[in-house]
Every structure is written in C-alpha cells, then in structure tokens.
Design a protein around this nucleic acid. Structure first.
Length: 586
DNA sequence: GCCGTTTTCGGCCCGACTGTTTTCAGTCG
C-alpha cells in the first residue's frame, strides 16, 4: 500500500506513458488523429515548465494544451493510483515490447503490425533473428532489400548513441557547411532542423544548399570522404551517415525557393503544422517548394522572411519555433526581443589555475577583455571539491591579493570580481562559513556531489543555499551532464519559488554539456520575475567562445536582455551585488 | 482524442524517397 505512494510521476514520465500509448494505438491501427492527440499531449507535458502535480492540485489539468477530458482523467489516474487501467488493457491487445522495434529505421507502425501478425514477432531480438534467417523477405510488401535494410538498421541502432549533444553537432555542421559552400554551383548554405533551433541535443543534421542544379551538389555530398552509408540520394533530398555515426540530410533547392525550403527544414514540425493551417485560411498550401494557390500557380519565397510575411507574421527566430505560443505572440505583435551574445557585458562564473582552470587570473582577464567584457568574476571552487583543487580559506585570501594586483595593472579596462563557486555540501551546508562569504564580491553556489539523493533531500540542499543571504547566483541548478547524466531530481517549483522570494539569480550555464537551467525552466523563471545569469564556467580561453550556446538556450526560453544580470552595466551589476551585501549585514 | 472571433461536429499538413510494385504503400521529417 505504501509502495503505491512512492510511485510518483513527473512530466517526463507521464509524457513517456502517452507516447507509448500512441505507439501501441498506431500499431493496433487506431485512427491516426487519436494517436496524434496522445503525442501532442505528451509534447506539451514535456514543454510545460510547471510540475503537472502542481497543476493537478491547484488548477485544472485541461488547461494544459492538448489535454482534454479523456487525457486529464488518465493523468489523474496515474497520479492517484500509479498505474493506468487503459494501458493495462491495451497491453493485453498489443504487446508493449513491439514499441522497441519502431526504433529501427524504416520500421513504422504498419510494418510492426505486419511482423507481429504474420510472423509472430514481438521483440527487437526476434525481429533481428527473423531478418537474419531470411524469413521476412516473403511477407507482403517486403523483399530482400527491405530485409537487408532492417538488419543494417538494427546494427546502426546498436552503435548510435541516441541524440547528439549540441556541442558535437554544431562544429561538425559548420564543417559540412564549409564543404558544401566550396562547391562551385552552390550559392548559399544553411543549417536547419533542431540544430538551427539550438536544441540541447539533436537527432541528426539538416543542411540546405541553394543551387540551380542539384545533381552535382548531391553527388559531392554523398561522395564526402567520411560518408560510410548512403541512406538515400534524390534530386531534392539526400541522406547519409558519417564515420562518427552522425546522420545528415541535405536539401538542395534553387535560390528562388530557398526561403520556403529553409523555413520548412527548420521546423519544428509542430510549428510548421501551425503555419500551414494559417496558409490554408488564405487558400494557400505551403510546402518546402512554395505556396500553392487554388488555381495551381505558385508563390515563391527566396527569403525566409517572405514566408512569414505572406502569412501576416513578423519573422520568428528559429529558437522560438516549437509551437509554444510563438505564433500567437507574433500575431499579437508581442514577440519578445530576444537576448543576443553582444548584450552580455560580464562573465560571472569562471575558473583559474587557482583551482582547476588552465589560465592564470591575468590570462583570464586578457581573454575576457578580448571578448569585450566589462566585468569578470573569478569563481574558483571551494575547499571540499578536492578533485578540482578547491581553495582553502587561506588560499582564498591569497587569491584576493593576486586579483587586486592584476586589477591594478589593468586599470579601467575590465572590472575583476573575486567570487567563489562554493560547494553545497551533501548535508546542505555551504563550504565556507558566512564570515568568509561576506567578503567575496560574488557568491555562486552549486551542487556537484550527491546528485542522486532523494528528491526531498537534494531539493532541500538547494533551498538552503538559496536562502543563505550571501548567495547571489545558483550555478547549473540541476547538475545535468549531456548526454550522460540526468540532473538531480529537484522539485523545481520549490526551487523557482525560493529563488523568486530571495532574489537569487539562476544560471544558464553556457557549456554545451550543461545548458542548465534548460529552456523550459528558463522561461518559467522569467515569468516568475527571477533574474537569470548566463555564464561560461570557463576553464580556458576557448571555453569563453561557448557563450553562444547559453544565449541560444536563453533565447529558446524567450529570455530578453533585461532578464539577465550579465547584460547590466558594471555600475548596475555592482550596485545589485552590493545591495545584496547590505541585506546580508542587516 | 482535441478543438472552435468562420465550427460543440467534423475537421485535424505536405512532399520526397524507397521498395515493391504495374500505380502505390510505408516511412520520415
């Protein structure tokens, strides 16, 4: 009885349940719109930014977009009882294990149903042995080629590490764009897909090239020396896998159609569906090729702006294109003016050789000046983080002298702050006593250990830090590492509430392995009036060039310059830090 | 199953590519 209480569903887990239901219904052959409804609800749960448990207790589940009466009832049943009668019954009709074979490229719901009904296959392992035994080729609609594709697909599945971190995908895509741009007939190149929208991880790379004649471009692309598998090769679209197991597809369109092509390939799918609905209201059909009028004539768009203009919208930045209200905002003329890299005047979370950084304080300052910053906080680790060479109290005081000395040399060019990335210990206490923290210019608190503690405990630790009057910023709040480590199981609603109450800023850590806060919670935070801080956590000069990833994450969270303390002038920032100091000593 | 300043019922986006096919079904984004 007690056990049922322990089974607690978060947004992600609920979304997974509804995605599974959608998969099973699709294999079962249910009308497609029903499965789409479940997927839509799952997406919206993931993108909610608020704990569904909170909405259930305090509001109405049907306020969640895509959640009507039926799905609301299912959410409630899951939250109350820990299981779902509907899913149990569905499992009796369609084996749940069939869902795993949908992961195989070229295997969708129809094929899954075929393998299940005609060959008794219910698991991925069974599918593989059947394919290797040559017993799939004689099924209706199948042949030797399809059978081989399934075998290679399963092999690719095994070697592919699901989604690609942005920090890996981005530089590789730039390389490929350079390659494509060097082809003579190519007039323009662009990246599309979730990479252009700057999601923290991407599934594959979507590339576009503008050229009158696509043939030579496609030939060059599929002939790239690092290509290990040509998945498809057409005149408009080709798809390949590279030696690093990253898949990429390339669209080639003539320049006069490049705008619709780029818009289409950027997505998201959900955003595009909305745009096509808008087009239909004007009796236009929108595709990657053009707008099509009823009389069969086309309206071409060379620029992406033209696509939005025809729909009566301002251009919408790619980072917003997730169907999270951006189209309604565009229609109402209230799109946010998103933050840009150039708005940032300070980096408030960096490391030097005093702990685990690679550069001296002087070198870090030089790197910051080179990048146009006005304020640099050196925030080396505190003592208990021994692996990172955390500073004892004595060393911390010695470091102050060096910072002062470097400041003297630099004069007015940049303002150095002595800070600390102070460890939130596993018992929730901070790693330096209050009388040490009070002498620091800025205090950043963070979790590095005990991230696997139970939700209650790890949340409490973070709340302790937020409530400490000396703490100014919480760095990388969840502690996630992409792609390997999930963040701590935090009660984010409680964390955000405390941050709002105590005026503590929450960091969007710009390192592509972190991007923490994520876009969803960043957006929720600014809705609650919480200040954000975008920092590089730089351990070297080149780390400072990763700032744009943090800015992109903020942009995905609808963040404007005013929301981010790093955009403030040095004067304003220092006043803010000092005012918190006054509050401390009061 | 969801949703509505055109609708509470009847809609719910579009095209490319591949393989197995004599004109189309399935998958994918």
């Amino acid at each position: 009885m007690e056990m049922a209480q322990e089974k607690r569903f978060n947004n992600q887990q609920l979304a997974d349940v509804f995605d599974t239901i959608a998969d099973l219904l699709e294999i079962k052959g249910e009308v497609i719109y029903k499965t789409l409804a479940y997927r839509k609800a799952a997406d919206n749960l993931r993108n909610l930014g608020r704990d569904v448990n909170e909405i259930w207790r305090e509001g109405d589940l049907t306020d969640i977009p895509g959640v009507g009466k039926a799905i609301a009832n299912k959410i409630e049943e899951l939250l109350t009882t820990g299981h779902l009668d509907f899913l149990d019954k569905l499992n009796e009709e369609v084996p749940t294990t069939l869902v795993e074979i949908l992961q195989v490229p070229d295997v969708g719901p129809k094929k899954a149903a075929l393998f299940w009904h005609d060959a008794g296959i219910t698991t991925l392992a069974e599918l593989e042995s059947a394919a290797r035994a040559g017993s799939l080729r004689d099924l209706p609609g199948m042949g030797i080629k399809s059978e081989t594709r399934i075998i290679t697909g399963i092999e690719a599945l095994a070697r592919r590490t699901d989604r690609i971190p942005l920090g890996t995908a981005w530089p590789f895509a730039q390389e490929l764009l350079g390659f494509l741009d060097s082809i003579e007939s190519v007039q323009a190149v662009e990246v599309g897909g979730s990479l252009r929208r700057m999601k923290a991880t991407v599934g594959d790379l979507d590339l576009l090239a503008a050229a009158e004649d696509s043939g030579p471009v496609m030939d060059a692309f599929v002939g790239h020396p690092d290509v290990i598998d040509m998945i498809s090769r057409g005149d408009t679209k080709s798809s390949v896998e590279f030696a690093n197991n990253i898949r990429a597809q390339l669209w080639v369109h003539p320049p006069e159609r490049f705008g619709t092509a780029l818009q289409y390939a950027t997505g998201s799918k959900e955003h595009n569906v909305r745009l096509r609905e808008l087009a239909l209201k004007q009796d236009l059909s929108l595709s990657d090729q053009a707008f099509l009028r009823k009389d069969g004539s086309e309206v071409l768009c060379a620029e992406e702006e033209d696509v939005y203009e025809i729909l009566g919208l301002p251009w919408i930045p790619p980072e917003l294109r997730e169907d999270r209200g951006e189209i309604q905002a565009a229609q109402a003329g209230v799109l946010p003016v998103l933050i840009e890299v150039g708005d940032l005047l300070s980096d408030l979370h960096t490391h030097s050789t005093w702990s685990d950084g690679k550069l001296s304080i002087q070198e870090m300052a030089d790197a910051a000046i080179e990048r146009g910053l006005k304020v640099l906080a050196i925030t080396d680790h505190s003592a208990s983080l021994g692996v990172a060479g955390g500073l004892t109290v004595r060393r911390l005081k010695e470091q102050r002298q060096e910072i002062d000395a470097v400041q003297d040399v630099l004069g007015e060019t940049i303002h150095l702050l002595q800070g600390s990335e102070v460890e939130i210990r596993s018992d929730g206490s901070l790693d330096y006593p209050d009388d040490i923290l009070i002498d620091l210019d800025i205090v950043i608190a963070s979790l590095h250990t005990g991230l696997r503690q139970p939700r209650e405990k790890v949340t409490q630790r973070l709340l302790n830090a937020i409530r400490n009057p000396h703490v100014d910023v919480i760095a990388h709040p969840t502690g996630r590492i992409i792609p390997n480590r999930e963040g701590a199981d935090l009660d984010m609603a409680a964390v955000l509430e405390a941050a709002a109450e105590h005026g503590v800023a929450l960091e969007i850590n710009a390192h592509p392995a972190r991007l923490d806060l994520d876009d969803i919670y960043a957006r929720r935070a600014i809705e609650m009036g919480i200040n954000l801080s975008i920092n590089t956590d730089a351990h070297s000069a080149s780390d400072m060039d990763l700032l744009h990833f943090g800015v992109a994450t903020a942009r995905r969270g609808w963040v404007t310059p005013e929301n981010v303390i790093n955009t403030w002038t040095a004067e304003r920032l220092l006043v803010w830090l000092k005012s918190r100091g006054v509050a401390r000593s009061a």
